[in-house]
Amino acid sequence: MDRLDYLWRLVGTGLSFSFFGIGGLVLAVTVFPAINLFIADPVRRVAVAQRTVHSAFRAFVWFMVVTGTIRVDARGVDILRGDRGVLIAANHPSLLDVVLLMSLMDRAQCVVKHEIWNNPFMRGVVKATNYVRNDDDPEKLIAECSKLLAEGNNLIIFPEGSRTVTGQPLNLQRGFANIAVRAGASIRLVTITCVPPSLRKGEKWYHIPTPSSLFTLRVHERIDPAGFCGYGPPSVAARRLASQIADRFGNLLRDA
């Protein structure tokens, strides 16, 4: 019976990955070019494109849950949906984190590496959604993030920079804290745990755990950077903010 369950979930995982790839490709060559072609108003175009991503990710997560490939326990989603102009900072245990977050939020922006703009399949998507392009120019990045936050967009950011290395304390980059301090935007903390772990960095899709992974997503407090400013230059405020958030993440994840 266990063996059957395992095989079924292996098929489910394979199907999910195929769906993700094929679905993404179909959207990228049909829906997103159409959005770019037919919706001239940039504000409306971005809203439609973001909602499309949200719906596609929701359908995808639903498929994975229904097939028993993963289990999801998300709490505090209403708080997340009520946020405007907030940096959503989450830890990053798995490949699915951004998909989960975007499936829960209908208007979310994220920072994407600039190589994606050269990818013929992905170009249409990032152009339509207006995701922030990271050109390795920090001044430009901060300016663009500040503008989006001021317009009321929420910005998903993984302060670790890349996926968590299991068994090590979170090592946060300070970029997110610098954006918060300089944009005057508050930071919403979100923790994600995935037990047993799967889809970690360097892991193959077919290495699936038994039982299926339970993704637990929790929405925590919002931290206002204003309390950290005023003691010195923004660089000092960003350091204090990043260090307090690293401690807080450490506590939250230990209790999780």
């Binding site: 390795d136 920090p138 901060i142 970029g175 610098n178 230059p233 923004p234 660089s235 960003a238």
Partner: peptide
């Protein structure tokens, strides 16, 4: 120091 720090 990170890249933002160098700008500062």
């Amino acid at each position: 120091l990170d890249s933002i720090d160098v700008i500062d």
